[in-house]
């Protein structure tokens, strides 16, 4: 069985990112970059599936500049078998990421595509569902539990009001939510071993066809601090005077 894990290089989710002075871009100079946290969960889940089910090849793939090699190497250190860098400096939106992933899937032919529910930079939450549509594969988004038996995936997924359990025939696209697992700490031997694992660079199959374009970035309006009250009693009086209790 083959699992494909598409991963995105994103700015450290804990970093404070500011728009550039003219608002045309983001100022990320000096900030750390990471594997998108949801994609790291996807890699971890693929590795756990292999630990449970055996005989699984895990391929990680990233679309981006050569800088993404850092994240692909980390994925290899986590246990992926090989990596593909679709090398490009073009801007992509989620639909064009899905287009490129679909082209790659047609060549790689994985049985399962495990990916993040959303990238923590664009917060789009689109690419997985779009890829599933392009391939006409079933999908399960927001997965919090996954088992694979033969050619069927059993997924518990989070919903607006609780959870549901779905049974999907493979091949399928599954996107990860936070509670699926906690990615492992990478020990030194893994990092060293990852250096010799194959990383294949290739150009994109097609130029991206953008459906949307970001024309301006601005800091979100911040709420200003209000007043501090000195006691529960004062808090209660303030709430009462505002008519909310």
């Amino acid at each position: 069985m083959k699992i494909l894990v598409p991963i995105k290089r994103v700015v450290d989710p804990y970093a404070k990112v500011r728009p550039s002075a003219d608002g045309s871009g983001l100022d990320t100079a000096g900030l750390k970059f990471e594997i998108n946290p949801f994609d790291e969960i996807a890699i971890e889940e693929a590795v756990r599936l292999r630990e449970r089910n055996g005989d699984i090849e895990i391929i990680v793939l990233s679309i981006g500049t050569s800088e993404s090699e850092e994240q692909l190497r980390k994925a290899l250190a986590m246990g992926a078998d090989r990596a593909i860098l679709v090398e490009t400096s073009e801007v992509y939106d989620s639909p064009s990421i899905a287009d490129e992933l679909a082209a790659q899937v047609n060549e790689i032919r994985p049985d399962l595509i495990l990916m993040g529910k959303q990238a923590t930079d664009d917060d789009a939450n689109q690419a997985g569902q779009m890829l599933a549509a392009l391939l006409d594969y079933p999908q399960a988004t927001f997965a919090s539990k996954l088992t694979v038996q033969g050619s069927v995936a059993l997924v518990t997924r989070e919903t607006d009001s609780g959870e549901e359990c779905l049974e999907l025939p493979l091949p399928a696209v599954i996107t990860t939510d936070l509670r699926l697992n906690e990615p492992r700490y990478i020990a030194l031997p893994g990092i060293i071993k990852a250096r010799s694992k194959p990383l294949d660079r290739r150009p994109p199959t097609n130029a991206p066809k953008l459906r949307t374009r970001i024309t301006r970035y601005e800091l979100a309006p911040t709420r200003s601090a209000g007043v501090k009250v000195n006691s529960v009693d004062e808090l209660y009086q303030a709430l009462k005077s505002k008519g909310v209790v």
Partner: peptide, 20 residues
Amino acid sequence: TVYKRPILAGSVIATVEVLQ
């Protein structure tokens, strides 16, 4: 064809132009 939406955990607002 132009909308605003939050990105980066709501810390930045992006203006998005729709091309399709």
